[in-house]
Every structure is written in C-alpha cells, then in structure tokens.
Amino acid sequence: MTAPLLEIRGLTRTFGGGRRWFGPQRPGVQAVQGIDLDVLRGETLGIVGESGCGKSTLARLLVGLDAPTAGSIRYAGEDLQALRRRDRHALSRRIQYVFQDPLSSLNPRRRIRDILAAPLRHLRGMRGQGLERRLGELLEVVNLRPEFIDRYPHEFSGGQAQRIGIARALAAEPELLVLDEPVSALDVSVQAQVLKLLRRLKAEFDLTYLFISHDLSVVETISDRIAVMYFGRVIEQAPARALFRTPAHPYTRLLLGSAPVPGGPAIQAESGDAELPDPLAPPPGCAFAPRCPRARAHCRGAPPPLDPLSGRERHAAACYYPVEGAWQRQAPPPP
C-alpha cells in the first residue's frame, strides 16, 4: 500500500480559553479533539456528522484557514504548517476548498472574471493570453456558458454559483479538494447535477476528495470511505459499503435510523434528549454515552479509542461495546 496523501495525527483545535489579565484559567471549547485520519490518493473520503461535531473546523484546518492547537497534518509526507511557513501559496496550490453557500462565497461586487482570475494570477502566476485561455477552459469544464464571465454573482442560480465556486477551486490545479457541504444549500434537482459534475471532475483531473456533509445518502453515493464524527472526534470509520451494511457504533446506527427515505419504513425517534454535551464541560467518558441505549458505567469513565474491529477489514469504531451484525431499519416501536 502506498503512503497516504494526507496523514492527520492527533489533530486538536481549541477555541477560546486561556487566561485573561486577571482571573483564573478559563476552559476552552475543543471543536476537534485528537483526530487521526488518513486520506489516500485518488479516493473520496466522506465525513458525516451533525451540527457541532467539528467537521467544518476540520475542513478549515486542512486548507489553512485556521491553525491547529495541537497535532499534525502531513501532506505527501511534508508537514503542512512548515509548508505554509515556507511559502504562503504552496498549500493553496495543493489543497483547495469548496464552500457550502455558493452565493456568500462569491463577492457580490466582483465579476466572475475577477473571481476566477484571482487564483490563476496569484497562485499560478498567469497573465495575459494564457490567463484568458485558462478562464475559458475553466468555465467549459464546469459546464457554464462562456458569456457568463462578465456577469456578477447575483445573476446566477444556486447551482450555477456553486459551479463557479468549484471552478475557482480547480483554477489553482490542486490535488485535494475539501468540499464542505457543497450541495446542502441547493435544491434537490440541482444537487444531482452538481454531484454528477464532481464525479466527472474527479476522474478527469485525478483529484482526491474530502467530502463533508450531514446528509448520509449524499455521502453514501459519492464516498469510497466514510468517517463519522461526533462531538469533535471520529467515532467510526469504514469503507462506505461496510459502514452502511454493518454500522458498529450506536450513534451511526441512530443516524441511519433517523434519515427518512421516500416510501421507506417509519423512522425511529429517540425518546430522550437529543442534546450534545456542554462543550465547556465535556463528559470524561464517551460523549455519546448520555444518549446511548447500550452505555454502561465503563463508557462514562474514559473516552473509547478508535480501534480496528476484529474480523472487519479497515473498519474501526470508537466504542467499548460495538454493535454486531447487519443493520436494518426497525419497525416503529409499539406505542
């Protein structure tokens, strides 16, 4: 097996905290807590989780919009922070980002030409004729008409704007694209168009994707491997098929059981409180234990490590009592 393109080890990001001029040490919020993750060249790694699980913080750390508090990210064997220090643009030439909200990620007062030309000019040093030619290519690659180049963002629909966002990310000729909920803000009919485009681009440009979403069905269709996050940690990681066939963590099972499918059986609803723990005072043990029907005393002691499951290939779960067997939608509980 070749070395992974991206090696994430013990990645942690704490917000706030520290000392004021006076007063005691204040606790910080650990948005991301000691994440270990590998991304292989050419694969699509899906990251699933609900709001507040730290998936967007992880994305911002990877593209350099934020710096980790602890831990390391290595890109093709090279430390990301060192790379950034050496050359501000080096990271952006390798890893690019696609934003969730296509319209708010485009400056309303700049033409599409200016928006797309910026990475070409500043990251790839293009000028004049070459730049013009490349602009045309970029629009063509994402199926937009060439005359769109002189328009302003508000003249586009959500799907078109997202394609401009993708074109901007591709302009830097990156090897890895971090896609942060790229289709969540779009209508369902447009979602499918953008997903199709992303699939085509990946094959065409040999890209590696880190695809972040809260929507399980979208992640399932596009990912090779999936990592499930909860409260700042990866709690389960497996090849996509295996994850959906035999989810091992009770939280993954809850997520799957909560997603309504058209014409499918009734979904389960938790009877208790579906609240996340207080991020300022995280529980000492497994963060999911308060919601978990299988939790025992042991779970509340120390957080379970993300360990490979015996007998299942490349499947790991952070649970002391992983669930065995195939997953099936349950019939609604008797009233």
Binding site: R88, Y97, S104, S105, L106, R110, H122, A171, A172
Partner: peptide
C-alpha cells in the same frame, strides 16, 4: 463572510483583500 476566506485561498494577501474585496463592498 465566506468570500473573504475564498479570496485568501485564491492567494490574495491582506492588502489585496482590503482593496479589492472589502473596499468595493
């Protein structure tokens, strides 16, 4: 706003962001 992050990822420095992204707005 996100387009400022996007400009940073497009390789623009602070001065460029101030003059070409923020000033027009």
């Amino acid at each position: 706003r996100e387009f400022i992050d996007a400009a940073r990822l497009s390789g623009k420095g602070n001065l460029r962001i101030l003059s070409s992204e923020i000033l027009p707005n």
